[in-house]
Amino acid sequence: MKITTQEIIKIRKQQVRYPLIQPIADRFSPRHFSSEKIPNKVIDSIFEAARLAPSGHNYQPWFFYWTRNTGRTFEKIISCFPQSNYWAKTASVLIVACYLPTIDGKRDKYALYDLGASVMSLILQAQHLGFYARQIGNCDTKKLKELLNLNKDHKPFVVVALGKIGDYSKVEEIYLKKDSQPNIKKTDITKNI
């Protein structure tokens, strides 16, 4: 099987029914990145987008640790993944997205929800600048916390792999198989009342 990156992009978004803004229309989660360097300016923009996300009581219960694919930290993060997430080795940047479960000693009920909103903002900003993301929940977060020496109040929840989309004519067969399928989306997600 041989498929170009353009064809993958088309397959993944073929069921869009109504007009969407560009970053939402373009976004999907590839398993193949180009590994090229992401400019500092882009990094600044994506965290700025994350920073401005709305949150319950404006608590902003999020924190992000990030690394480029050039050092030991990158290897450490990868070592917390099961083999099924080794595709992340081609990412240019890995971001450990953490939530802050408590504020002033009290539990923040909306911490996970708000982290989701913040990561979504980050990803849409990245997508707007031409960078793709795929999130990873399947990760040994206990090990991650130890290896990276994270602040004890920060709970790692997902790792975001980020980069330019890779050249699918050179991807490993297993990822090509997975990524060349349309991802079925539910059609029934609302009820008028």
């Binding site: 869009v16 939402i24 976004r27 989660s29 990803i123 991802n183 997600i189």
Partner: peptide
């Protein structure tokens, strides 16, 4: 319609799309 379509294209863990919206106009 576009606003709801944006929800459909949100990423989710294992593509489970664990959301539902009651719409009151």
């Amino acid at each position: 319609n576009s606003i709801i379509e944006a929800v459909r294209w949100t990423p989710s863990s294992s593509n489970r799309q664990p959301w539902f919206f009651y719409v009151a106009k």
